[in-house]
Design a protein around this nucleic acid. Sequence first.
DNA 1: GAAAGTATATTGTGATCACAAAAAATATAA
DNA 2: TTATATTTTTTGTGATCACAATATACTTTC
Lengths: 236, 236
Amino acid sequence: MDKHSPITLNPRPRDDSQTVTQWVYQSLRRAVMDGDFLPGRQLTIRALAQMLDVSPMPVREALRQLAAENALEILGNRRVMVPQMTAMKFTELCEARIAIECHAAARALPYIDAAQLKALQQQDAAINTAQASGNLAQINHHNQEFHRLMYSANPHQVSLSLIESLWLQLGPFMRLASSNISEHYLVDRHNEAMQTIERKDAVALQLAIAADIRDGVAFANNPQQLQRFIDHSNGQ
Amino acid sequence: MDKHSPITLNPRPRDDSQTVTQWVYQSLRRAVMDGDFLPGRQLTIRALAQMLDVSPMPVREALRQLAAENALEILGNRRVMVPQMTAMKFTELCEARIAIECHAAARALPYIDAAQLKALQQQDAAINTAQASGNLAQINHHNQEFHRLMYSANPHQVSLSLIESLWLQLGPFMRLASSNISEHYLVDRHNEAMQTIERKDAVALQLAIAADIRDGVAFANNPQQLQRFIDHSNGQ
DNA sequence: GAAAGTATATTGTGATCACAAAAAATATAA
DNA sequence: TTATATTTTTTGTGATCACAATATACTTTC
């Protein structure tokens, strides 16, 4: 729970087509998602600005945007903090994921055609490749992409941004979680999901998604192991 | 769909305890929620700043925050627009509301004690008072407060901010909707909900909440009437 | 040595400015 | 009159600065 521990930031190179604010936003978002900032860590505008070699202005806007997405927390004294995690909050976040993602999946199902199913299969293959290489960040990334691809088949999608807010809040812990998951789990659930899509079976798809999410946080079923993860992530 | 129609803004007086940015944010949020900005309307930083008699800076931050909550939309040319509504999107928003709010209600139920139930009853009474006076904005406001009160009984609440994002997107249309609802509907559903809370019956509570939401958008069951509302809101 | 008070440094906030990109208005050509 | 080119204006962006509020470091006091 150290507020001032040193942080390292490895931002992607600036793309000239995007604004500085966008670049800062994406850099910070990725850092939060990857758990580069320890929970409880306080972030200052000027420090981040210096780290990214930009003026304080775009950092201010990026921080405010991330706070609006619940990725960061603005304290009463106007300082910005990486939110703390608790076992109860973790459970709530997972249950919210299940509720919303199952709903989004069912709503997307009618729109998933053969081409999109193929894209899902390719994404699933990418997950396998990442698992073979043992790159946890990559596994997570492709896993998210699989879900995103599915939900965004719905052209009138309104819940994806809500789901991403939950991912952002869980992000740092999912990487820890990945290290404890037997590889075959995720693959099975995704195959299961894709089969239900072929059958256009909404209820079965929801069950598969719920199972996939629960598998992903299976380590949280053991309360004391969950607490260990949280303590570890909070810096012991 | 006029991009430049004149807009009027009736902000609340500035509270000295809040920052200018917060005040601007709340003023704009209320305007969006109340439907003071027509969908498709483009908002410029400088115009709003002049209207509110502040510098462009706090407006910039408020707009970015509202965009992060999907209350506003940032276009490719970096301009800010009030999102357009479509019949399909409206349906998606309502279904998302039902999915998430039912979930939030069930999750809050175990935490609702006698005192909080009493607060809900008081809020319900406030809705009745508002209905008697025929003030649509007041009805909406107290109705939202009723839901908010219920969900936030859960001390580990994580979905309320997601729900509020949906309210923001639906806000302008709910006021139109209110004008078409028979008064007794809302009251019945809320009483129903409070009875299920006393019984600690989660499933029945979810049914009551879903019914309450569906009653609130009952006018949308008739597709052409929904389209009329949207057309009207989009400025014919 | 611990607590309270003071001084210094740091921080978020909000205003102002320069600039490039985009939009609107105007002028030109067919 | 319509389409195209040019100028003018407007707009978002990002940097810099002043200031008040907060936090930190230091001193004093008991």
